[in-house]
């Protein structure tokens, strides 16, 4: 059994890694697909506008939603894995 402090550190490291992955996706769909990479993505037509336009006005918001629920679900699993969850 690891020391409580080590558990805390490992838990925190796992959390930071998860947040970092999520924020990369967050930045890619909004700043990437929606703004900077739009000219590239717009080659693909979505209902008369490009895929970049779709991400800027619709897609990024849907991805944000999936990200938050994915993060919450994964964090709750991490809480249990490292035994730092709240008491019932």
């Amino acid at each position: 059994m690891a020391e409580p402090q080590d558990t805390g550190k490992a838990y925190w490291k796992a959390n930071i890694r998860l947040v970092a992955y999520c924020l990369v996706v967050w930045a890619v769909v909004s700043y990437g697909f929606g703004l900077v990479l739009r000219p590239v993505l717009d080659v693909i037509d979505v209902g008369g506008a490009g895929l970049g336009f779709w991400f800027a006005q619709q897609g990024s918001i849907y991805v944000f939603l999936i990200l938050i629920f994915f993060y919450a679900y994964r964090m709750n699993a991490l809480d249990r894995q490292f035994d730092v969850q709240e008491d019932e």
Binding site: V19, L23, A56, S60, I61, Y71, A72
Partner: peptide, 14 residues
């Protein structure tokens, strides 16, 4: 649209 929704990702994770 992106600015006023994307903030919730930061709020939830940070």
């Amino acid at each position: 649209l992106m600015g006023w929704t994307g903030g919730y990702v930061l709020l939830a994770m940070l």
